[in-house]
Amino acid sequence: MSPKQQRGEETVDRLLDAALRVYAAFGEQGVTVGALTKASGVSLGSLYHHFGSVDGLMNALLRRWLGRLLAELGASLERCRTARTGIRALVRAYLTFVQEHPDAARLLHSSYADRLGMAQARQLRDAQEARLSPMTAWMQRHVDSGEVASLPMPLIEALVLGPVVATARRWLSGFDDVDLDEAARVLPERVWRSLLP
C-alpha cells in the first residue's frame, strides 16, 4: 500500500471513529458536518472526498459495525457442532457484542438503521453476503439433518434474532428492567426450543 493510500485509510478510520463518538454523544441530529470535522480533525473536503456526504459517512459507519457484528456471530458458530450449541453461542455472542459495544449497538438498533435497512435492504444484505452465507449454510445443514424445524430461513432468523434484538433494544434504551447477563443465561435455551421440529 502506498503512503497516500495509507493516509486515506487513516482518514477514513478517523472519520468513522469520530462519527460514532458524535452519534453516541448527540444522537442522529447531532451528526453534522461541523461536529464531524471538529471531532475527527479532518477537513470538510476530506469528508466529502471519502464519503460524499454525512449520509454516506453514516451508511459506511453502519455497514462497518454490521460487518463486525456478523463476523462475531459467524465466529461463534464455527466452534459448534450441534444446532443447539450453535444457537446458544449465537444468542450469547449477540448479547455480548451489545454489552461490549453499546454505542455501536445503539446505532445498529436505531431508527436511522431501521430507515436505511428498509430503503436499502438488498444492498446491505449483498454487502454482507460473505458473512451471511456461511451462517445460512450452517443453519441449513441443521435443518436438513432434522435438528431444526423445517421452516423458511427468514422465519428461522426471526425466531433466533427476534427475542435477542428486542432484549438488546430495551437494554440500549436505558430500561433498568433488563439484565443482559440474565438474558444470556435464559434466552439461548428458550430460542433453541422455538426451533425444535
Results as ranks from 00 to 15, higher is better:
170 R>F: 07
149 A>K: 15
112 Y>W: 09
164 V>R: 04
52 G>A: 01
8 G>K: 06
119 A>S: 14
59 N>S: 05
116 L>Q: 14
63 R>I: 06
55 D>M: 03
98 V>P: 12
108 L>A: 04
21 R>N: 11
162 G>N: 02
58 M>G: 00
17 D>W: 10
123 Q>C: 08
118 M>H: 15
184 A>Q: 09
84 R>F: 08
15 L>Q: 06
195 L>N: 13
23 Y>E: 02
177 D>I: 09
44 L>A: 10
41 G>S: 01
134 P>E: 00
19 A>Y: 03
73 L>D: 05
143 V>C: 09
162 G>D: 07
6 Q>T: 04
188 P>I: 08
22 V>K: 05
133 S>W: 14
31 V>M: 09
125 R>P: 04
106 R>D: 03
6 Q>P: 06
98 V>Y: 12
175 F>G: 03
174 G>D: 03
106 R>L: 13
57 L>G: 00
13 D>W: 08
32 T>D: 06
162 G>W: 14
184 A>D: 07
110 S>D: 02
127 A>I: 02
115 R>S: 05
11 T>P: 07
106 R>N: 07
189 E>Q: 10
4 K>V: 13
127 A>D: 02
93 A>D: 01
41 G>M: 07
187 L>Q: 12
8 G>L: 10
104 A>S: 12
84 R>Q: 08
99 Q>R: 14
35 A>Q: 06
156 I>V: 15
61 L>Q: 04
125 R>S: 04
132 L>M: 01
141 R>F: 14
70 L>Y: 06
152 P>F: 15
38 K>E: 15
45 G>Y: 07
143 V>Y: 13
123 Q>H: 13
20 L>A: 03
